[in-house]
Write a protein that binds this DNA or RNA. Structure first.
Ligand SMILES: [Mn+2]
Ligand SMILES: [Mn+2]
Ligand SMILES: [Zn+2]
Ligand SMILES: [Zn+2]
Lengths: 141, 141
DNA sequence: CGTTTATTTATAATAATTCTAAACTATTGA
DNA sequence: TCAATAGTTTAGAATTATTATAAATAAACG
């Protein structure tokens, strides 16, 4: 019986090649951390800490550079939920979020679980680049 | 024929009294700027600039203090759309936003124009404190 | 009034992020 | 294989929105 992996694992080198980014030690390590498991949400600081723990030696500046390069390449997307800190999401497909305000944690909501009925038209001369739905939660767990 | 004001004008002194904040020159001036016209969205910097132009002498620290005090009193609400800058909204009733990304401008969407059908349940032990819908726009106007 | 308490503000501190420029590394194509 | 080139990393400085500090000022209250 075949099981479908919970997340399409992408070979880090392949991924960097496609993004036209040189496969440096730092980028490979970050790609592994980001994409080897299931979908996740990180901040520059959280990913940096994780790299340290995994004994990957790199600078925080490289983490920022890489997160932005990956975002530009469409491998990540930014989620704005907190004005003091930028979150990056490895799930780039259309979906919305719970934001656990007490813990500063983002979790995904399945695409079908939020249904926006009656979206207003974009004003003259503009086009909708994205619709973000953030359900802010308070309380434990 | 009576016309309904587009926004319930609130007497600044009355407003401060109800919020249990002393009616200082600075707060009165900011309350006037914020609530005398129609609903609006400001940043600390934009409101500070406006005060300067109106020859109200106050410090930027007072603008920040006042925006937070007004928010705590329920006269304003924060809107998170841009990780580099905090927006405050004089419209505290339930509604959603267009965010004009090129200009950094927020505009209101009427409550009825967005209809979320099928909102997921809050995870165990949490409660929904707010649902934010941001329609991000690119392009002129 | 005079005393108490809240407010304002200049200024310093903080913190996330970006910038700079020098050192390092991957790629390329003779 | 190797030098030249172009891209990458990084320490450290700079930036920027925001918050903290603490002294001066103003409002409230009896
Ligand atoms: Mn952070
Ligand atoms: Mn701002
Ligand atoms: Zn997500
Ligand atoms: Zn609004």
């Amino acid at each position: 019986m075949e099981t479908v992996a919970p997340f399409p694992y992408r070979d880090p080198s392949e991924l960097l090649r496609r993004a036209r980014l040189r496969p440096t030690r730092q980028r490979l390590a970050l790609a592994r951390l980001l994409f080897a498991g299931g979908p996740r949400h990180v901040t520059a600081e959280s990913l940096f800490a994780e790299a340290q723990t995994a004994n990957v030696r790199l600078s925080l500046a490289t983490v920022y550079n890489t997160l932005h390069q990956f975002t530009e390449a469409g491998l990540l997307r930014e989620v704005v939920v907190d004005s003091s800190c930028t979150y990056f999401d490895t799930n780039v497909s259309e979906h919305h979020h719970f934001f656990h305000e007490d813990q500063g944690v983002l979790t995904d909501i399945d695409g079908e679980e939020v249904n926006i009925h009656a979206l207003p038209a974009a004003p003259e001369g503009t086009k909708i680049s994205r619709v973000d739905v953030i359900i802010r939660l308070s309380g434990q767990k």
